[in-house]
């Protein structure tokens, strides 16, 4: 299990310095264009010509490519095998073996789906690699995200590593007492319960005190909140975000009036 806050990597790159909302808008735009735009090659071009170069500008290129491959390779392998064999509209047989036949339409469909998912996952990854989650939440709060939602997300990100550490401790303790976590399915199911109990109840008892602690610090105050940090937003970035909107409209138009 991974014990970290998010995918964020601390670097000083122009991409890291961009306003988080700008990066979020760009990510959404690339995804929407990949899914709505025309042509078989558009998503792969977005990945090769925009996302990959950008990841190197952000000084996270290697981690970006490695994580993208790790997260998507199994899906893609599966996708290509299944779709090229079982795609419902497949007519053009490329080659056949035993009772199976690989069809061109299936391969095309698998390629398009795979590259679209690639753009979706890697756009988010690039955003996450170059943006501290706290800064993203702060910026979104200043743009109207409810403070309670920001609180939930921030504290979840900090609770998870602790609960993972606790889970690892309990798992080790149970294993040393002879708990079988490999074995047959029945054994593995029986291994789950002694793990879950201490983990869940241990974290639930803290809820009351934690609620008191944040109320003691004015969390429920009805006064307008202020912010310690101000996140920079430049006019150029605002213009870029409008451009993104334009790109989305164009992609949508190409879908509606081909």
């Amino acid at each position: 299990m991974v014990e970290r806050l998010s995918f964020y990597l601390e670097r000083s790159s122009p991409l890291h310095r961009l306003n988080p909302t700008t990066k979020l808008v760009v990510a959404f735009t690339l995804i929407l264009v990949a899914f709505l735009g025309p042509g078989l090659l558009l998503p792969s071009l977005i990945f090769l010509l925009i996302l990959t170069p950008l990841s190197f500008v952000g000084q996270v290129g290697r981690e970006f490519l490695r994580t993208t491959v790790r997260l998507l390779l199994p899906l893609f392998a599966f996708l290509f095998v299944m779709q090229s064999l079982f795609y419902p509209g497949g007519k053009t047989v490329l080659f056949g073996f035993w009772i199976f036949s690989v069809k061109l339409e299936g391969v095309r469909f698998a390629f398009l789906t795979a590259t679209r998912v690639l753009v979706m996952v890697s756009s988010f990854l690039l955003l996450l690699f170059t943006t501290h989650p706290g800064v993203l939440l702060l910026d979104l709060t200043q743009r109207g995200l409810p403070a309670s939602v920001a609180y939930i997300l921030a504290s979840t990100l900090q609770i998870i590593p602790q609960m993972q550490a606790k889970a690892a401790t309990i798992l080790d303790a149970q294993r040393s007492r002879g708990l079988d976590t490999s074995g047959s399915l029945g054994r593995r199911i029986r291994a789950l319960l002694p793990l879950v109990g201490p983990l869940v109840f241990g974290s639930l008892v803290d809820v009351e005190e934690r609620a008191i602690a944040i109320e003691a610090r004015g969390f429920r105050s009805s006064r307008p909140k202020t912010s310690l940090v101000e996140i920079e937003d430049r006019p150029l970035e605002r213009a870029l975000r409008w451009l993104c909107l334009l790109a989305i409209i164009l992609a949508l138009g190409s879908r509606l009036w081909p």
Partner: peptide, 25 residues
């Protein structure tokens, strides 16, 4: 406030148990 503090714990339970389940295949 109890709900707002419970939700992060609940999400962490989702994630961590989800991961343990993967670990136990």
């Amino acid at each position: 406030t109890m709900t707002l503090v419970l939700i992060p714990v609940a999400i962490a339970i989702n994630v961590v148990i989800g991961q343990i389940v993967v670990l136990l295949r």
